[in-house]
């Protein structure tokens, strides 16, 4: 099928009226290509969940249009739901007295899985998330991580073409979280489009092709993952520890010293290097020539650094006055 998997144009959402009115989304426009993973970042109340709910047909936009594979989320609800899987994390969302399999079977039926295929698909989904052995136990006996995995199985069981993932790795241990990232990456390779909302920037870093930042209901950045990483303004942090007089300039590296510390004749300097390429090590050697260096540590820029830098920049630029829900 040609055309984007998700097409959001000028979407706004307002809750309440009059003085209690809250603008959750304002003129949000973006697209997700088929087979692409879009990571959505934003602080609490930025409008991420509102946007996800609109695409899941749980909430109507106040203005604008949103389409999933060409189907309007306001008018073609059933078509949108047939193509979309939703994974919202948390402890709730299941019948505690029913087993994992019974829950999954029931929700798979609601999601439109045919009665002839349901048994095999439920078994596959349970195996995919590692719950096959616990499938007969009541969900109320499940740990938080197991419930999260069941949420994921629930989103996958109907084999959707668009997957909306809201904080999918919350509650998972590192092994499980990595396993989930593998599942998501595998889904992308089969052409599934994914909208991923996460506070764990590692998820975005590892999976997203593009990054969209929502701030107070507005899209403030929509870029490729690579561009986003570069938007911090530096490529790596170099930490140098040495003895003797504290160096002030590192001209050969094109970097300025930050966080200079000195203790007992030993100094530590952190440098933010704007670019990292083939000649960087040579320039670093030249910059450190003549110094009594004890240790050098190089760390490539992390998404956390980028996010903190970008959000800091945004909060300095933004006007106040719009309340988020």
């Amino acid at each position: 099928m040609s055309g984007p998997a998700v097409e959001v144009t000028g979407v706004g959402r307002v809750f309440g009226r009059g003085r209690d009115q809250v603008v959750a989304l304002r003129d949000v426009t973006f697209q997700v290509a088929e087979g692409q993973i879009l990571g959505i970042l934003g602080s609490n109340g930025a409008g991420k969940t509102t946007l996800t709910k609109i695409l899941a047909t749980l909430l109507e936009p106040s203005t604008g249009t949103a389409r999933v594979f060409g189907h309007d989320v306001r008018r073609e609800l059933r078509a949108v739901r047939r193509l979309t899987g939703v994974v919202f994390g948390g402890d709730r969302g299941f019948y505690g007295a029913l087993s994992g399999r019974e829950n999954l079977r029931y929700f798979a039926m609601l999601a439109g899985v045919g009665r002839r295929a349901i048994r095999a698909k439920v078994d596959d989904a349970l195996a995919d998330v590692g719950l096959a052995e616990a499938a007969r136990r009541p969900v109320e006996t499940y740990s938080k991580g197991m419930r999260q995995r069941l949420h994921i199985a629930l989103g996958l069981v109907a084999e959707p073409r668009l997957l909306l993932l809201d904080e999918p790795t919350v509650g998972l241990d590192p092994v499980e979280a990595e396993r989930l990232r593998g599942t998501v990456a595998r889904l992308r390779s089969t052409g599934v489009s994914i909208l991923l909302t996460s506070h764990y920037l590692l998820d975005i870093e590892r999976l997203a092709d593009r990054v969209l930042i929502l701030s107070r209901g507005t899209v403030t950045m929509d870029t490729t993952a690579g561009e986003f990483a570069r938007s911090a303004g530096f490529a790596a942090t170099v930490t140098v520890r040495g003895r003797g007089p504290t160096p002030q300039r590192f001209d050969a590296l094109g970097a300025t010293a930050e966080d200079v510390e000195e203790q007992g004749g030993v100094w530590t300097v952190r440098l933010r290097v704007p670019e990292w390429g083939g000649g960087t090590f040579e320039r670093l050697s030249a910059a450190l020539a003549g110094l009594e260096v004890l240790a050098v540590d190089v760390a490539p820029v992390r998404l956390e650094d980028v996010y903190a830098t970008v959000m800091g920049r945004l909060s300095a630029d933004e006007p106040t006055g719009t309340r988020a829900p």
Partner: peptide
């Protein structure tokens, strides 16, 4: 759907 009171979880 209009008011946003269909909680998902």
């Amino acid at each position: 759907r209009r008011r946003g009171t269909l909680e998902l979880v």
